[in-house]
């Protein structure tokens, strides 16, 4: 697929009902540029998603991709099994199609990383 920097995709952000975020239960449709991260687009639109490093390392922003496709080339710590299980890191993920993501998945993602013996899973859960 060819990409141009002015191409945009509709990213649907689903905040689960049981999320501790103020936006729990809400769904947002955002237009996100192909060169823009989902996190940056959400925060610019006033949807304050959790994040920390914004370099694809700490996993605070972890989300589940339920539809569509993203590119994650700049994530500093992202594994094949994350991709296969449908986890993304919105701080570095850029849409490549119209996409739907379920955000605020940090706790589940830590369990997943721990089960796969990948950091920071066990180092966080064993503390």
């Amino acid at each position: 697929m060819t990409q141009s920097s002015n191409e945009t995709w509709t990213v649907t952000i689903v905040v689960p009902e049981d999320s501790s975020l103020e936006e729990a239960g809400e769904t947002y449709d955002l237009e996100v540029g192909a060169d823009e991260t989902i996190l940056a687009a959400a925060r610019s639109a006033g949807v304050w998603l959790p994040a920390d490093c914004q370099q694809g390392w700490c996993t605070t922003c972890a989300a589940r991709l339920v539809d569509g496709d993203v590119a994650n080339p700049n994530a500093r710590r992202y594994y094949d099994e994350d991709d296969e299980a449908g986890y993304i890191l919105p701080c570095t993920a850029k849409p490549r199609t119209d996409t739907t993501v379920v955000v605020d998945q940090y706790d589940d993602f830590l369990e997943f990383r721990a089960a796969n013996d990948r950091p920071p899973g066990n180092s966080k859960l064993d503390s």
Partner: peptide, 15 residues
Amino acid sequence: LPNDIRDFADRASCP
């Protein structure tokens, strides 16, 4: 602090 420095590095919030 974690007893194992490897755990400390693994959970560091920056790369």
